[in-house]
Design a protein around this nucleic acid. Structure first.
Lengths: 189, 189
DNA sequence: ACCTGAACACCGTTCAAGT
DNA sequence: ACCTGAACACCGTTCAAGT
């Protein structure tokens, strides 16, 4: 494995283990067995290394969505699976999820990262479109509806991750809330 | 004004001016005219100072929601106004908004801050309940529906603030997306 | 009670120097 | 081309000392 890949893998592992603050260049360098400033020969700065982690994960999500879309399941099942994929990823790797969907510095780097994000969204939107074709979701503009559904999912996950989904709020779980949303959005239900 | 209040005001201003990273105890102390470690006599640590800022803002949102609820407007108008209040606050003070709704460390402090958050949510839920009573929103459990609507709003705002609401995604604006949500949720529309 | 200055253990980043 | 060690300008936090 090249040093670049090793650095990305180390940063990814540190994100899972201790959150974004744990990803210091000193810790990353130490994990790979090089000095704390050697990463600068592979990435412009700390932000670029984190963006590289995000790139890998966006590609993974795109693949996952694509696999679900090409499966033989019925549209709403595909949608629920796609949303569950996101929820599982967000819960298992909260710091990495935030990198992809909540970190302004990452998005500000534009270019490759923005394209990777748009590819993942396009796959998601394609699944939503299938639901719309089968009249299982309303006839709103596909991008707007897909964005709204994704944003709802994101809001639920972010509130949960930051400890704001208290049972007292009636938000017993992200899964239940998503199911409620899809049910309420279903035409004529 | 007591030193405590001055520190909170200074931290709040620094959040608006330069984001969370700009709120260093050195900068806060300097703004108030004391040394960089004097704040420790008023707040346990940097996190407690930020939590105090969040407390003030939660109370402000609670008041705003309460005022809207007691107005003579029709329920859906109240709901839209409440959501617009949140959107305006989130856009004008993004760093402070994140403190209230995205910062895990703040929520983890529990106690007072959690209670302040729940009071704001209760006011919001009361407005949603009025909409439900007038059959303008579906007959789902109030807390679950309120949480879902708020989470959607939060997801839209967070994605926008972090630079992920590209027009290409069909999410031309948070306002339009919120309107779409309320329209789609309206029974028999 | 409230504040100060020095100090400690960290950061990201830069740079001269090595191979 | 890739790496190292020292250095710089920051942090949050602690502590002894002052009033």
């Amino acid at each position: 494995m090249t040093t670049d890949k090793k650095l990305i893998a180390a940063a990814s592992a540190l994100l899972d283990a201790g959150g974004e603050d744990a990803v210091t260049l000193r810790a990353v360098g130490h994990a790979v067995g090089i000095s704390h400033n050697a990463p600068y020969k592979h990435f412009k700065d700390r932000g670029a290394l984190l963006a590289a982690v995000a790139m890998v994960d966006f590609a993974m999500l795109t693949d996952a969505f694509c696999g679900i879309r090409q499966s033989g399941a019925k549209p709403t099942t595909k949608l629920k699976r796609a949303l569950k994929t996101v929820a599982d990823y967000g819960r298992t790797h909260p710091a990495r999820y935030r990198l992809l969907f909540s970190n302004a510095d990452i998005a500000a780097q534009g270019g490759e990262i923005e394209q990777a994000a748009m590819m993942a969204f396009a796959e998601f939107a394609a699944i939503v479109k299938e639901c719309q074709s089968k009249q299982e979701l309303p006839d709103a503009p596909n991008a707007a509806l897909s964005g709204l559904i994704y944003a709802s999912m994101h809001g639920l996950l972010d509130l949960e991750a930051s400890g704001r989904m208290r049972p007292a709020k009636g938000l017993s779980s992200v899964g239940q809330s998503v199911d409620l949303l899809i049910q309420l959005l279903s035409p004529k239900a």
